[in-house]
Design a protein around this nucleic acid. Structure first.
Lengths: 195, 195
DNA sequence: TTGATAAGCTGAATATATTCAGTGAATGCA
DNA sequence: TGCATTCACTGAATATATTCAGCTTATCAA
């Protein structure tokens, strides 16, 4: 990788984008999603409204970026913390982490994941998805998981279900225990995958 | 039911609300959700913006009303069209209809179902849910469905999964066959419910 | 009948996201 | 070095949802 040195301009641009991003995170943390306005973000970041739109297509685009980074973080965290012996158990564990992660992110944030404007899940959650696919492939090699379906499809199936579970929880404003529900339901699903 | 006669005022109010509702439906059908604006709706309905807000809490509230009516319609339609002999098969059939219904509604509309602002699913989809619960109860009586979980929870489980499936489809802009996917996945789930 | 009340409704004001025509400075090429 | 080009950035204009103070008139109790 030749690391081409950045021009002064490019350095400043990156710094500006980060300032906008961090201002958004900050406001969100302090006041919640509802109170996150473009004007406030630009004020806090000391840029004009136009500058904000120079770096982000829309307000939702900022959110998408936040989600993307969170997802990246989750993937690297979870990959190093699966302890169970059998792959089916590891899959359950994987979704335990996923539930915990959503709880930690908060209901308000989680609700935004389903905002049709954001389309977060499509390209972005690839790291999470491939991680799960690899797990399933390993399970099939170890004959712990049925072989009649390919890892891609099984992973997709599990994810679709897990998202349904998270959506239900976010709909109910997080008023019940997501981790317990996830554990139970994924447990049922995984039992159908065992060979 | 004593049918108390409406005053002239009340009649007019109902008519106005309907005019607003129909204007919204009309614009949505013709131009899609993106082009649905408050000003256009009020113009088409011949009322002021304020009047619109007198009848609906927000734009999303109009949508919620549309979804509610659609749901009502679905419930009455589907209840009279389950032909299969066994209850598990009827459940699969039920979700076949559900998929078909979403396809008929269109992707754009379906995406809006998941809009966190609308909170459609919470109270509103009761008729659909109770219908499914009754079905499951009947299945348990006929010993076709396992008895270790109550109908409420099984119905909820299936619904959560079905919503995940619909969400995935709407995310992908309806680019694949929802009915086939629903049939397959619900089939897998229902097989775990058989006694 | 009449006056008080409240329902239905108005539209201008407000809040907020998004666009866009321009400005000035950094870059890079001759 | 000089200059054309492009990039980062500005902020006023626009689009849209939502609020609200107040108007008009139907309703109804006395």
């Amino acid at each position: 990788m030749g690391k081409k040195p950045l021009t002064r301009r490019q350095e400043k641009a990156i710094e500006t984008k980060n300032r906008i991003y961090n201002a958004a995170i900050d406001i969100m943390d302090k006041k919640g999603f509802e109170k996150l306005t473009i004007v406030d973000i630009s004020k806090k970041a000391n840029v004009s409204v136009g500058a904000l739109y120079h770096y982000f297509k829309s307000k939702n685009d900022i959110l998408a970026e936040i989600f993307r980074k969170a997802d990246e973080y989750f993937s690297t965290e979870v990959i190093s913390s699966l302890n169970k012996a059998s792959v089916p158990d590891q899959i359950v564990e994987y979704f335990d982490h996923y539930a915990k992660f959503n709880v930690a992110s908060g209901v308000e944030m989680t609700q935004q994941l389903f905002n049709p404007k954001i389309k977060f899940f499509i390209k972005k959650s690839r790291p999470m998805l491939t991680l799960l696919q690899d797990l399933i492939r390993k399970g099939q090699e170890k004959k712990e998981i049925r072989m009649d379906t390919d890892p891609e499809e099984l992973a997709r199936f599990l994810f679709v279900m897990a998202r349904g579970i998270v959506f239900e929880w976010s709909l109910h404003e997080g008023r019940y225990d997501l981790e317990a529900t996830m554990h139970k339901y994924i447990g049922i699903l995984v039992s159908t995958l065992r060979s």
